[in-house]
């Protein structure tokens, strides 16, 4: 791949003998929506945390726009927009205040932050409860606000870590539409999800991880054609590759 936005090379994260991520290679191309799939404990979240510089890598390397997470975590974090798995908004602040305070961390001047916050509030339909503490928001609104917050610094790479977990179908579809729109605008996206249907719909390319390794990769269509030539969907492929036994983290 020429000019990848993200490049993982023999990436490892180990705790003693136990490796949560055990030699992983992948690249994310510019403008691509790249999926990271796998059952619980596969190493998805650990990989995301290394990418967002929240965890140091044990071995190998991981670069964003040519910058290594080992050398320039701060410079990388300026380029990222992170929509986390868990809701970690500031519960005491209003919707606007959440966005404006967060934009400070990126050195965005106040007037500019307010302008961007207003744009994002309109785009993500957050005006109904503008002045209320975010504690009062519905689950779907909180997730939309998380996504809006991830975009306040106009990131080069958007990291969506299970963006629709726990949402009703209406909210889920709305988030999907947003992701598609961002893709149209050329934003590079990394998506992790447990909803295989979601990955099939949104991702240009994806990898399936299990036990800290990548066990398969390709476009959704390629994976289905390769593993289920008689027909099926990506979830069938996923279960065929990772088995049906339950995983406990």
């Amino acid at each position: 791949m020429t000019d990848p936005v993200v490049k993982a090379t023999a990436l490892r994260k180990c705790y003693g003998d136990l490796c949560a991520v055990d030699g992983v290679d992948f690249e994310i191309g510019r403008g691509e929506c790249f999926g990271l799939l796998g059952p619980n404990g596969a190493g998805k979240t650990t990989t995301v945390k290394m990418l967002t510089c929240a965890l140091p890598v044990t071995g190998g390397d991981l670069t964003v726009e040519g910058l290594s997470v080992k050398e320039d975590p701060r410079a990388i974090k300026y380029l990222l927009g992170v929509c986390p798995q868990e809701v970690n908004l500031d519960p005491d602040f209003s919707v606007v205040k959440n966005l404006v305070v967060y934009s400070r961390y990126y050195d965005i001047p106040r007037a500019e932050a307010e302008k961007r916050a207003a744009e994002l509030i309109a785009r993500f339909h957050l005006h109904d409860k503008l002045e209320r503490p975010v504690e009062d928001l519905s689950g779907g609104m909180k997730k939309r606000l998380l996504l809006a917050r991830a975009l306040i610094n106009r990131p080069r790479l958007l990291v969506l870590d299970e963006p629709t977990t726990g949402l009703d179908p209406q909210s889920r579809r709305q988030i999907w539409q947003e992701v598609r729109d961002m893709k149209k605008n050329g934003l590079t996206t990394l998506l992790t999800t447990h909803y295989i249907e979601e990955a099939e719909l949104l991702c240009d390319r994806l990898v399936i991880m299990d036990n800290g390794r990548i066990i398969e990769q390709g476009t959704p269509r390629q994976l289905i054609e390769k593993h289920l030539p008689g027909g099926g969907n990506l979830e069938d492929v996923f279960l065929k590759l990772t088995g049906k036994h339950l995983r406990d983290e």
Binding site: T52, C53, A54, P73, R74, K77, Y78, L80, V82, P84, E86, V87, N88, L89, D90, P91, Y102, Y105, Y106, D107
Partner: peptide
């Protein structure tokens, strides 16, 4: 509980 540090650690703050 609020996971504030998790939110901040992915911003340019060390």
């Amino acid at each position: 509980y609020q996971k504030t540090f998790d939110a901040l650690i992915t911003t340019p703050l060390s």
